[in-house]
Amino acid sequence: MSSEKKTLKLKTGTVSKSTSEKIAKLLSELYGVNPSRYLPSVLNYTCFNENLCIIYGSKLGLVNLKVLYENSWIAVYTKKRLVPSINIVRSIYSDQGVKAAIIVKEQGVKAFLYGNDILLESVLQVVPPVKKLFAVIDSADNEVIGFAAWNPRRRIYENIYDAGLFLRELG
């Protein structure tokens, strides 16, 4: 048995009021939506390590059980940033259309899903509003595959997290 298997401890708990407010502000700023429509009243978190925490809505209040994940995945904390979940952005896009996103060519998608950044020439379209954070959309099927942040100095979209992260980090 590896040492990780022996020592693994996951931190779980209820998200603080200030973090909940940060998530609400993020959704409001990026997508111009009323956050209360998408955010459950109670948010819990599970941290797998220092680099990856997931935030999800708690509906059932299973107080006697250690809950590690519930159905409404809301946000991720990674690379010291709080970022919306792929699921919540899919839901917002389904209601309001695509906003604050980059639509990426096949080669860029492949690199991104393995944790790499996106080169400027891989971006087919930038969908406004143009903020620091962009949902990354695969041009082949219009699926949200993660998030990237524009780095003006390096002139690339830096990978904040991608759908492959969960396989890499969680096994």
Binding site: E4, K5, L8, K9, L10, T46, F48, I54, L60, L62, L65, K66, V67, L68, Y69, E70, N71, S72, W73, I86, N87, R90, A163, F166, L167, E169, L170, G171
Partner: peptide, 25 residues
């Protein structure tokens, strides 16, 4: 088993399955 649950959560997130609750007991 926590390390196995971690992988389970990874699959749920990767597959965008929303109708799940994961508990450790």
């Amino acid at each position: 088993v926590l390390y196995r649950l971690k992988a389970l959560i990874g699959h749920f997130m990767r597959m965008k399955l929303n109708n799940v609750i994961v508990t450790c007991s």
